[in-house]
Design a protein around this nucleic acid. Structure first.
Length: 207
DNA sequence: CCCTGATTCGC
DNA sequence: GCGAATCAGG
């Protein structure tokens, strides 16, 4: 018995796994994401497989014409093998780069510098979500993630932890989200959603 | 620091 | 064929 999904005894590159790999890679997913999804493999493994499959170039998969003007990685002369450098010299392909990731273009300079006058130093700053109508869905998401929040203290925050404050700083029911931040952002994905509003859902409610 | 893919080479 | 180690760039 063991009706659970088998790891094929060795996580080999089965047809299905390869298909998923191709699918995700085609969708622009990163190797690490694919590896995580597949499980049992590292991103290196994924990248290696991707190359072996010959779909290294996501944007320039021009079959039959592999352009590799890059010949790096050779600071380790272990044997100094001969390198028949091919000279493709065919760089005229514009980079379409589908970019499946929606970029709401947050022009907002973060929410941090509110009143630098009262901020001693090294204090993250409390955004304080309010006076704003956030999407109900976003709020719901936030409420949900707050349950999973790590509830870190100010000192426990790092560059990679969500700095979204929850609760009242004057009470002991105050903590920071602490979930993994979205790269480049000070908050986790959910909180980024409410922190950076692309300006919408703004109903001019004139009483 | 984190991330990304690219490449090499021993297995 | 596989993927860890390494490299290189963002």
């Amino acid at each position: 018995m063991g009706p659970l999904f088998q790891w094929e005894n060795a996580m080999s590159w089965t047809d299905e796994r390869v298909e998923l790999l191709k699918k995700m890679w085609g969708e622009g997913q990163s190797a690490s994401q694919i590896a995580k999804e597949l499980g049992g493999v590292t991103r290196n493994a994924v990248i290696g497989k991707v190359h072996r499959l010959g779909l290294s170039n996501r944007a320039g998969a021009t079959a039959g014409a592999d352009a590799k003007p890059k010949a790096k990685a050779e600071p380790k002369p272990k044997a100094a093998p001969p390198k028949p450098a091919a000279a493709p010299a065919a760089e005229a392909a514009p980079k379409p780069k589908p970019a499946p990731e929606p970029k709401p273009v947050a022009s907002t300079p973060a929410v941090l510098p509110a009143r630098k006058q009262i901020i001693p130093a090294g204090q993250p700053l409390p955004p304080q979500p309010s006076a704003n109508e956030i999407s109900p869905e976003a709020l719901a998401r936030v409420s949900e993630i707050e349950k999973k929040a790590k509830k870190l203290t100010l000192m426990e925050l790092t560059e990679r932890t969500c700095k979204w404050p929850v609760g009242d700083p004057a009470t002991d029911d105050f903590w920071f989200c602490g979930l993994p931040v979205q790269q480049g952002k000070p908050y986790c994905e959910a909180h980024v959603g409410v922190a950076f509003q692309p300006m919408s859902a703004r109903r001019d409610r004139r009483r």
